[in-house]
Structure formats: C-alpha cells, structure tokens
Write a protein that binds this DNA or RNA. Structure first.
Lengths: 338, 338
DNA sequence: TATAAAAATGTAATCCTTTACATTCAGGCG
DNA sequence: CGCCTGAATGTAAAGGATTACATTTTTATA
C-alpha cells in the first residue's frame, strides 16, 4: 500500500542503492539520476521508513527525556529548550514521566536497551535504586545526561544551575537590607536542589556570623500548598523572622498568599525571596524578588551535551556544566522592620 | 555486540520463532521452552529491538503530540494527561513544537508518513495552510485527534472544553454581582478559543439585554504582558467598566498586577475573572475567580480517542468530546461598586 | 588511441523480528 | 496397530532501508 524505495527505484529506472544515495547524499549521484529520483519521490509521495532506516543504521535519531512531573511548568520549560536543540539536529524527543515507571512496571529505561532512543536526558535526581543501577551499566551510562537535578552519588555528566550561588545571592541581598533573622523554606529534603540552595544560604549567613538552626528550616515540597501552609507557622513564631528564602517560586507565592491571610505585609513585615523566576513571579502581588535560572538554557545545554556524547565528538563541557544565576530584585523584599 | 533473538534461540536450544512466541504470547509454547527462553533472556539481558519489531509489525507503538509552545504550563498539563493514558497502553509519546516546523523546514507531520508514529494529537488550532493540507490527506486524517484547540474549517475528531459555557458562566456570575459594564480581554483574534469564549460572553450578555462593543474587546494574546498592558487602558476609560472577563488566567493575573499599579482595587473597583484555573490562580493576590477546565482530562480523553482510532475499535465518543467547565468563585470578583 | 584513474551504478548481504506455512510429535480412539 | 487431531516447533519469507563490494561508465593523461 505504501510506496517503498523499490518502487521509486523501478519508476525512476535506477537501483535502490542509487535512490538511497540520491536522497541521503545527493552529491554522490549524477544529476540525471538525481532528478529522476526526486521526481518519482515527489509525485509518488515517498517517505523513508524510519524503522527500516534505524534498524539498518543502528541509530534511532531520537532521545528520551525523563521528567518527574510533566505538568510542572518548571520542567516543561526545560523541555522546550531540549526540544529546540534536538529539532535543529533533526533528532526526535520522546517524553516519559519518571513517576510512571513505578506504575507501569516496565522501566523507563527499557527504551534505551530496545535502541528505541540513542540517549537519555534525565531531569529527575531522585530515581529509585533499581533505576540507578540500570543507569550505571556502562553501555547505558555513556548515553545519559542529567539536567537541572542530578544524582550526587553517581557521576553522570550534568547540566545545572549554580544553586549554591543562588542561595548566597538571596541571603546577601537580604543582609544588605538589614535582615538578621531568617527562615528557609525547603523542598523535599532528599532533593539535591534543596540541599544545594540551603548550603548556599548557610554559607552566606556564616560569612555574616549568622546561622540557621533546624527549627528555621521548614517545608517538604516545592509546592504552592507547602508555602501557603507555612504562613501560619511563621506568623506564630516569636520573635518573628523577617526574611524568608524559598527553595522555589511556587513556595514563595503560596507563602505570600498565606501571609496575606495572616494579616502580615510583604515586604513590610516579612521579606520573601523565591527561586527560579517563573514567568508569573514578576506579576505576583507584590512582585517576587527571586533567583533567576535559565531553564531554556539548561535544556539546550543538556541536549547539546547529549548529542555530542552520542556522536562521540568531544563534548563542549567535559562532564559538568554549571549555568550562572542572577538575583531579580522586585517588590517582595524591603528593609528589615525596625 | 548486542544480543539478538538468534543468540537467545541458540542458547536456549529452540528456534527464533519459539523465542518470539515465548516472549509475546507465552501461552503458546510449552512450559519447558518458555522457561529455557526466559532464563536465557534474563541472564543475557536480551531486549527486543524496537525498530525491527515496528518494521515487521507495521506499527510504531508511538504517537506524536504537536504543541504550540511547550514551555507554556497550560499545554504541558494537557500533555501530562496524554502521557498518562499512553503509558497505560504501552505507547510512547513524541513531542514536537509546532512553531518549530516553521524553522526547521521539515514538516512535523513527516513523522506520520515515515510511520515513525501511529497517530497525532494536535494541540494547535492555528496551523499554517500547508500543514492543514497535509493533515487532510485521507491516510493522515484518520490518525489525527485535536485536543483543546481545533480547526473550525476542518472536521477532525476533537476533545475540547465547553469554552462557550465558560464565557457564559463568567458573565452570569458577574451579572449576579450587579455588574453591567464589561470588558473582554481576548487572546489572539484568530484563535478558536478566543472566539468561543467571547461568543459565550456575548450570549450571556444578550440574555440580560446587554452587549459588548468592539471597543470593549482588548488584547491580542493569552499572555501576562497583554493583561498587564491593558490595565492602563482600562484605568483611563470613562466611565470605567467594573467587570473584566479574561480569556486566560495569565491575562487576568497580568491585568491584576497592572491594576494594582494603577492604584485600582480588585475587586472593589474592578472585578476580574480568568479562564483555565491554573494552579497559581488560587494563590494569586487576590485569589482569582476563574473558569476551571480539566486539562488533564482533555489530554487523557484525546489520547484514548486516538488509541481507539488507531486500533480501529469503536471510539468512545464519535468525533467530538466536550468536557464541562466550572466556575471557581474566589476573591477577585465582588459586588459592583455603587 | 590506449590506459589509468575517478565517478556512477548495481548486486546482494545485512539490520532483527514476526509470522504464514510446513512439519513433527504425543495422545486418543476405533 | 493405524489414523486422526491438536499442540508445539521449525523454516524461511517478509518488512524497507543502507552499504560493502563488484562492476560499468566516464574523464583525464600520456
């Protein structure tokens, strides 16, 4: 039913080899043959069968991105950077939710073995042990790149933001404004981003002769709900901390909503700093001071790094690429209350 | 280097046919053979080559989702619904940005022809003419489903929210609160969602003996920026409208930020209604009254519909599936000022 | 003009599975 | 014991491209 390379060969009066060459390397055939082939291809609507090609070439021209939660805008922006770069290289993007592998039974990484994809971009630094082991097998490991998150115990190539610097920047900004009493709103405790950002916070505090005790570290997740819930707790503290560094913008926005409900003013009573600079941060009320990370850039860099590994060409950045972050000063931070 | 079905056949002392059967239909082989095969498979880490399988079976077990803008959280949530459903069916998800096809030259739909995917879920109702024509070819058309957006001129199966009802609900709510002077913040004028939501607004207004003139319809895009920019225009109107229905939550949040800057209070001076109920809507300041649509549900329904078409099994919903929307009353709407 | 080198083309093997069709085998029945 | 049935297995032909190797044609050189 569908037209194949044999049909084109017959119609244009050449062999299948010549058809194949005319399509994938036009310089290698005579002008006459090339024209005949192109003509037949166009009139009969021939398209190369990608499975046949991949089977023979031993290359899928596709990569898989594994995301902890597809619906999260944070991740999808990174994906869009990945997609941009892959598209330029003519490589397809498959997407899978890493939490889904728990459900479905079949491992997400089966794709790699089935040579369905040539490589893997992983945005999830908290894979179950079984998945970690699978990833560590040598023939798999060389086709994996982590983006945004990473696994601290393993040594995969990775693209990430300078999370620690972000934590420092947030604190330094607040210190300048005269704040001395801090809270850190964490994400999941086992998450590497939480850890790094907190480390940056502690570093900057230490430099000012301050530190954060465990009871000033709150929250278990990067979500709006966590931030909102923390407002009540914060309002009840005495003396009340005046500065909150949040591990995500979502937390920060939830927190601000909660604080408003508690009758506290941001930034007059409490200053709030987020992390990520999601699009809405600038339009929050008050607009959110936050640490900007280049999510598109993360995705693009990860895609480029993976493509380089697959090609075997020397990778631009050896195994680690750290992107800078910047402080976006907005209205949610102000001078510490007297 | 990689172990193939022949190796397994040799090792377990059976033919390749038996290996294939043992793996894809275990009931059809003797227990002895099955065990021998499974054993060999496990110890040697055999995985079926997906290209060989797809080539022979003439089925890719994958579908492509075409998205206008991957980074937009709105679309990625729909995608997550799609992914969920596909994952259950053991079908892979490829993702492509429809704007990318403009850049890259190669059409996104090439995938379909190359039998790289079995079907297509399109989230973009504003495809260029060339793409529309491609889609309309019979062998392509039967493997396409639209989700969320759709093409009014063509007749593809489609899953969508009841956008018109959403527009009505928003207006009815505002009418109840005593508002009589409305503004509609539109998305792109050629976008079908803009059109439908506006139609719903007009319907409900008409029923109350009111209507919206062209100079009360503002905006060209679903973005935060458009909403923000409209605030200045709105503040300058005299008499100033008291109710704004927005075609998206993004617009609404941008608008509220702008109104705050103009020194206007929401909802005391102006009531604002959004559309979508994105996660942050409930945590905006003030929390945003909006029309909720079930984005996960849209994605899931679209995926199911497509899978049914591919299988040739009777589709659950014939060609059109409209999901209900609900009004989420929050703090951004209040009684019309006296 | 003869010959060597280069360019163009063709033949057929290969990539790995699935599956139609053929064959073998075991057990039940007359 | 011979025949029949059904289950289990095997053989080999697709499926559609790419490419190593062989062959032919063209072009350049002496």
């Amino acid at each position: 039913m569908s037209v194949s390379i044999k049909d084109i060969a017959r119609i244009s009066g050449v062999s299948t080899a010549t058809v194949s060459r005319a399509l994938s390397d036009p310089e290698r055939v005579s002008e006459k043959a090339r024209k005949a082939v192109m003509e037949a291809v166009k009139t009969h609507g021939y398209r190369v069968n990608s499975h046949a090609r991949s089977l023979r070439r031993q290359r899928a021209d596709a990569v898989l991105a594994v995301v902890p939660h597809l619906g999260n805008p944070f991740f999808s922006t990174i994906l869009s950077g990945v997609e941009f770069e892959l598209q330029q290289a003519g490589v397809d993007l498959l997407v899978a939710d890493s939490r889904a592998s728990d459900r479905g039974g079949r491992s997400v990484f089966a794709h790699l073995h089935a040579s369905r994809v040539d490589g893997l971009i992983c945005l999830d630094g908290n894979l179950p042990d079984s998945a970690q082991q699978e990833l560590s097998q040598p023939d798999v490991a060389e086709r994996v790149v982590f983006a945004c998150e990473w696994m601290p115990d393993a040594d995969f190539p990775s693209v990430r933001s300078d999370n620690r610097a972000g934590g420092r920047l947030a604190v330094e900004h607040l210190l300048e404004l005269g704040h001395r009493d801090f809270v850190f709103m964490a994400g999941p405790r086992e998450n590497i981003l939480t850890a790094e950002r907190l480390a940056g916070v502690q570093e900057a505090l230490a430099k000012a002769g301050l530190s954060l005790s465990d009871d000033r570290i709150k929250g278990q997740d990067f979500t709006l709900e966590e931030g909102f819930a923390a407002a009540e707790w914060l309002a009840a503290l005495s003396p009340r901390p005046t500065a909150v560094v949040c591990a995500s913008d979502q937390i920060a926005i939830g927190l601000m909503a909660g604080l408003a409900q508690q009758g506290l003013s941001v930034p007059d009573d409490v200053s709030v700093v987020g992390f990520d600079d999601i699009a809405i941060a600038a339009y929050a009320n008050p607009s959110l001071t936050t640490i900007r990370q280049d999510r598109i850039g993360l995705g693009r860099a990860a895609a480029r790094m993976l493509l380089a590994r697959i090609d075997g060409t020397a990778p631009e950045h050896k195994g680690l690429c750290t992107l800078p972050v910047t402080l976006m000063k907005r209205a949610s931070t102000g001078a510490a209350p007297a």
